[in-house]
Design a protein around this nucleic acid. Structure first.
Length: 580
RNA sequence: GGACCUGUGGUGCAGCUCGGAGUGCACGCCGCCCUGUCAAGGCGGAGGUCGCGGGUUCAAAUCCCGUCAGGUCCGCCA
């Protein structure tokens, strides 16, 4: 007989399991009193809550327990009297009678009601996170997260990947995200940093012959927080040797589809893909939300010889907003402000009415131009057409942002549209000093066909970098890495990184590569974001047990806090006064 | 660093435009009643620095300025 894992020294069953227990048997359960309903001197109902669900116990009115008391109840499993069955509960057809109630801990009235139907201010929830965690929503989300983690591990294991842990105390590599700094006590004046990702460690594992590595890794970045960004977040991080981009996409797809199946019960057939250039052209972003169409339409040809000054730009693009003709003038002004905030010179709008185009600009358009605007994306009467004329990339990005602002459904709605975005550009413009900036990171392999452009036309160089996108959220990214010193030095040169700088920043990696670096490639994607989308949550805080606020505070512990004088002395650090 | 939104008994909200006594609603809490409820019901009660500071005014939850906290976004996130 297999062991009953539910039974412990204190109980022999979980609440929900009592539903299938034998009528008439005596069971002992433990949990919190979710609700007490009193019916006079000799009858009271207790809803007992544990991690499995809720169970009703019938007790004498003299039993002195209140909400959130921790109790142990031994009772007889009894069918409920006719007419008192509750269809909404798994345990709704039975109850515990002849109960012996033992109070394991008393409880004060909680600062908010632990009821999922009630909205509580997040500040209050975060201050008492341990109580919020008792509620069904967070219980479900964190259990979903555990299920996703389990399926990801299983998928990686199945594909021959070896789980390896890498250090949290790492060396500073001043590049990319701002790092969290940890002062060294034994080496005063010197510092560790917490890794923004295990990037270099995993490449060293490839040099170390591990061939296929993965880890569910915590990453830390000291950058401003957002709905989808916390200081610390969790990635499925992986790297493999003797592989191409296609191999990595296949490994990751298998893992993600496995997780999707575990989370939703349905395994998506495959993950579609498009190039970065296509994504920008059609959706105005490198993370398209494919749950809705509203694609960007190109009117550049029509407006190439336009007389309208506002449209005299290299690129003229438009989107159709269904039913948007009903937007008020102030709403349209608001959209225009939004477009300007994104860098556009302006935003042209055209209401499609039975009488034709309604817009301040309508009377300036030629017949051909007006016809083109009126037909954008098959526009009908009642629709709105938004037009941006500007440099190509800017026009795309502005309309892409408006597309999302006006069209994207809530996270909880619609299908899960997974998408690979490939062929990212190698370089991402130039910095203040006129040096090119790496779009992904400086170890990213350029596209084989574009190697010769590094010196001649670097902004045209495509890289072997790729992103995984789900419903408009960037889940993660990866690349084929440079394992050849000659290509690496050409990329460093393009980035304006001198040999000395390269040595001081990444010397240990470049040094390792001298001893036989296999061709390798990898990927990492955010589990917080993936689980949030599975859970239908707009915010990753809802899938994290103890998250921080947007200003990086932990309202429960009070972190960050000052440390003692003694700690400061030991670390040989000095706090300079505010404003200095 | 910047923009916008929010802050009113323990919780959620209304009151704020157009200043006039801490006014209202729902939940919770405490007490009493109630033998089949399940967001139980009935009666009664307690509970407030209207985030904080300043200003305008005879008078401020309400108007103005500043500040703090929370949220969404821009910048930032190789």
């Amino acid at each position: 007989m297999s062991r009953n894992f539910e039974a412990t020294s204190l109980r022999d069953s979980l609440c929900a399991s009592v539903a299938s227990a034998e009528i008439g048997s005596r069971v002992t359960v433990c949990g919190w009193v979710a609700k007490r309903r009193e019916h006079g001197e000799h009858l009271a109902f207790l809803d007992l809550r544990d991690r499995s669900g809720v169970l009703q116990a019938v007790v004498d009115g003299s039993v002195d327990v209140r909400n959130e008391y921790v109790v142990r109840i031994t009772g007889t499993v009894s069918p409920r009297p006719e007419g008192t069955i509750n269809d909404r509960l798994v345990t709704g057809s039975i109850e515990l009678t002849e109960c012996v109630v033992e109070v394991l801990a008393t409880a004060e009235a909680p600062p908010f009601q632990l009821d999922d139907r009630i909205d509580i201010d997040e500040q209050v929830r975060l201050r008492h996170r341990f109580l919020d965690l008792r509620r069904v929503a967070l219980q479900d989300n964190l259990r979903l997260r555990a299920k996703v983690n389990r399926s990801l591990r299983a998928a990686m294991d199945e594909q021959g990947f070896c789980e390896v842990e890498t250090p949290l105390l790492w060396a500073p590599t001043p590049e990319g995200a701002r790092e969290f700094v940890v002062p060294s006590r034994l080496h005063p004046g010197e510092f560790y940093v917490l890794p923004q990702s295990p990037q270099i460690a995993k490449q060293l594992l490839m040099v170390g012959g591990f061939d296929r590595y993965y880890q569910i890794a915590r990453c830390l970045r000291d950058e401003d927080l957002r709905a989808d960004r916390q200081f610390e977040f969790t990635q499925l991080d992986l790297e493999a040797s003797f592989v191409s981009q296609e191999d990595i996409l296949a490994f990751v797809s298998h893992a993600v589809l496995n997780a999707a199946e575990a989370a939703t019960g349905v395994r998506p057939e495959s993950i579609s893909s498009m190039t970065w250039a296509e994504a920008l052209d059609h959706y105005g972003t490198d993370k398209p939300d494919l749950r809705f169409e509203m694609t960007l339409q190109d009117l550049s040809a029509v407006f190439a010889t336009t007389e309208v000054k506002a449209f005299g730009a290299p690129t003229v693009k438009a989107i159709k907003v269904s039913e948007g003709a009903a937007f008020t003038r102030s709403r349209l002004d608001q959209l225009t402000e939004q477009a300007k905030a994104l860098g556009a010179k302006g935003l042209a709008w055209f209401r499609i009415t039975p009488e034709g185009l309604d817009s301040p600009l309508a009377r300036f358009l030629s017949g051909e131009e007006a016809a083109a605007v009126a037909n954008v994306d098959g526009a009908q009467v009642g629709d709105l057409v938004l037009v941006v004329a500007d440099e190509y990339v800017l026009a795309c990005r502005v309309l892409g942002a408006l597309r999302v602002a006006l069209g994207s459904p809530p996270v909880s709605q619609g299908p899960h549209c997974y998408l690979w975005v490939t062929e990212f550009p190698m370089f991402d413009g130039v910095d203040d000093e006129g040096h090119l900036m790496a779009a992904h990171h400086p170890f990213t392999m350029p596209h084989a066909d574009d190697l010769d452009l590094i010196e001649t036309d670097p902004l045209k160089v495509r890289s072997q970098a790729y992103d995984l996108v789900l419903n408009g959220w960037e889940l993660g990214s990866g690349s084929v890495r440079i394992h050849r010193a000659d290509i690496q030095s050409r990329v460093f040169k393009a980035l304006g990184v001198t040999d000395e700088e390269a040595q001081s920043r990444f010397g240990f990696l470049l040094g390792a590569f001298k001893y036989g670096a296999p061709p390798h490639a990898g990927f990492a994607f955010g589990i917080d974001r993936l689980v949030a989308i599975f859970a239908g949550e707009e915010n990753i805080r809802e899938v994290i047990a103890f998250p921080k606020t947007q200003s990086g505070s932990d309202l429960m512990t009070g972190a960050p806090k000052s440390i003692t004088e003694r700690q400061i002395r030991e670390l040989r650090i000095k706090i300079s006064p505010k404003g200095s």
